[in-house]
Simulated assay, not measured.
Amino acid sequence: MTSDARFWNKIAAKYAKSPIRDEAAYRYTLERTRSYLKDGDTVAELGCGTGSTAIEFAPAVSRMVATDLSSAMLDVGKERAWDAGASNIEFHCAPAEQIPDGPYDAILAHNLLHLLPNTDEVLQSVAAALRPGGLFISKTPCLGEARGSLKYYLFKIAIPLMQLVGKAPSNVEFTRIADLEAAIQKAGFEIIETGNYPVDVPSRYLVARKRA
């Protein structure tokens, strides 16, 4: 078990009870994402956590595959899916680069990419698992956009201290929007929609289509 799996397992129960920080931004990105999904779609969500987003989208698609490296998070997700009657969700314990057999019409990654040490590898796996023309939809806190501000320096000080005492995962990237978009394009995607929800510090919402 990796150190990050242990971290997320340890906080799963507390995480499941935590309120969404920006409900309006979360709901807006759910609506935008749902607008791209169709009844017959097979969809995967990477880093699904406790399953809340997968459960939201399950009624809109044919098959939902939800993965996370934390078995404790998935246990909460399975219980929530049962309670919601979301019988078309399959939960898999796996790191983001190990995507269960597709192909998929869409792959989602919300609040995940900034926590990965191997983003390029994961994006390559996403491209390989999608059908031609399939969609990759992500939302990524871009902490690097605060560079030069007081908030940026507070992040730079606070995050390593939190990691030292086990209050943050081992990898947190200070992602810049331009770098994120370049990585997605390099993996074989055309970006077709962007937005920042919330704006400060930007959480970059991206919809990208796999090139044929």
Rank of each mutant, 00 (worst) to 15 (best):
P95F: 06
A81L: 08
E145V: 06
D39M: 05
R27E: 15
V76P: 00
V61S: 01
P19I: 10
A158E: 09
E193Q: 15
A16H: 03
L143E: 05
G166K: 11
S3I: 09
L150K: 08
R21S: 08
N111Y: 12
N118Y: 03
A12E: 11
Q98S: 15
Q124E: 15
E79F: 02
L161E: 01
Y197S: 13
L46I: 14
L161P: 00
D179I: 09
K139G: 11
A208S: 04
K151S: 13
S52H: 04
T53S: 15
L161F: 13
Y153C: 05
A24L: 15
S70R: 11
L143T: 12
I157R: 07
M1Y: 08
I184N: 07
L164Q: 10
I159K: 11
I184V: 13
A5K: 14
A24D: 08
G77C: 12
W82R: 15
G51P: 02
R27I: 00
S170C: 10
P117G: 08
A168G: 00
V43A: 09
R80C: 10
K156I: 00
K210Q: 05
L115R: 11
L180K: 04
P59D: 12
L135A: 07
G148N: 08
A54Y: 07
P141Y: 00
K38E: 02
A54M: 02
E56R: 09
A158C: 10
F57C: 07
A25E: 06
R147W: 05
L206K: 04
A12W: 02
D68F: 11
Y104S: 04
A5P: 12
E145G: 07
S62H: 13
A58L: 07
R80K: 15
L74S: 02
S18F: 06
I107D: 04
E181S: 01
V43S: 10
A129C: 03
K10F: 03
Q185G: 15
G77S: 05
E45K: 12
F136Y: 04
E90W: 04
I137L: 08
Y104P: 03
K14W: 02
G195T: 05
A129K: 13
I107P: 01
P95R: 10
L115W: 04
I137S: 01
A60R: 02
G49T: 06
V61I: 13
Y152M: 05
T2D: 14
K156A: 11
P198A: 02
M64E: 10
A86M: 08
R21M: 13
L30V: 13
G195D: 14
A60C: 05
L112W: 01
A72Q: 14
L206V: 15
